[in-house]
Amino acid sequence: MAILPASYARARPDSLRATPLTHPPLRAHILVAWRTTAPMTPATRALVGHLREAVDTSEPAR
């Protein structure tokens, strides 16, 4: 048993059986970390920029 993205299960209908988890609603805290001792690569800079636009950062990390 594993928790996987729905897209993964849809891509393998012959080998996986998916059961949606609905109760209780799932919530997750996701942490993104990068080195501050080296310059960001362009890909890292783009990802961090997109995440900052898409995610509510008003609540400080714990």
Results as ranks from 00 to 15, higher is better:
residue 1 M to W: 12
residue 2 A to P: 01
residue 2 A to M: 13
residue 3 I to D: 05
residue 3 I to N: 04
residue 4 L to D: 00
residue 5 P to V: 03
residue 5 P to A: 03
residue 5 P to S: 11
residue 6 A to D: 07
residue 6 A to P: 00
residue 6 A to G: 02
residue 6 A to I: 10
residue 7 S to C: 09
residue 7 S to E: 15
residue 7 S to R: 14
residue 8 Y to N: 03
residue 8 Y to T: 08
residue 8 Y to D: 09
residue 8 Y to V: 10
residue 8 Y to W: 08
residue 8 Y to I: 14
residue 8 Y to E: 12
residue 9 A to D: 03
residue 9 A to C: 06
residue 9 A to N: 09
residue 9 A to T: 13
residue 10 R to N: 09
residue 13 P to T: 00
residue 14 D to E: 13
residue 14 D to H: 10
residue 14 D to V: 01
residue 15 S to T: 04
residue 16 L to Y: 13
residue 17 R to T: 13
residue 17 R to P: 06
residue 18 A to K: 11
residue 18 A to E: 09
residue 19 T to G: 01
residue 19 T to D: 02
residue 19 T to F: 12
residue 19 T to P: 06
residue 19 T to W: 07
residue 20 P to H: 06
residue 20 P to N: 07
residue 21 L to N: 02
residue 23 H to L: 11
residue 23 H to M: 01
residue 24 P to L: 08
residue 24 P to H: 07
residue 25 P to E: 09
residue 25 P to Y: 05
residue 26 L to P: 01
residue 27 R to S: 06
residue 27 R to I: 00
residue 27 R to W: 01
residue 28 A to P: 02
residue 28 A to N: 05
residue 29 H to Y: 12
residue 29 H to P: 00
residue 29 H to I: 03
residue 29 H to K: 02
residue 30 I to S: 08
residue 30 I to Q: 07
residue 31 L to R: 15
residue 31 L to N: 15
residue 34 W to L: 14
residue 35 R to K: 11
residue 35 R to Y: 06
residue 35 R to I: 06
residue 35 R to D: 14
residue 35 R to H: 11
residue 35 R to Q: 14
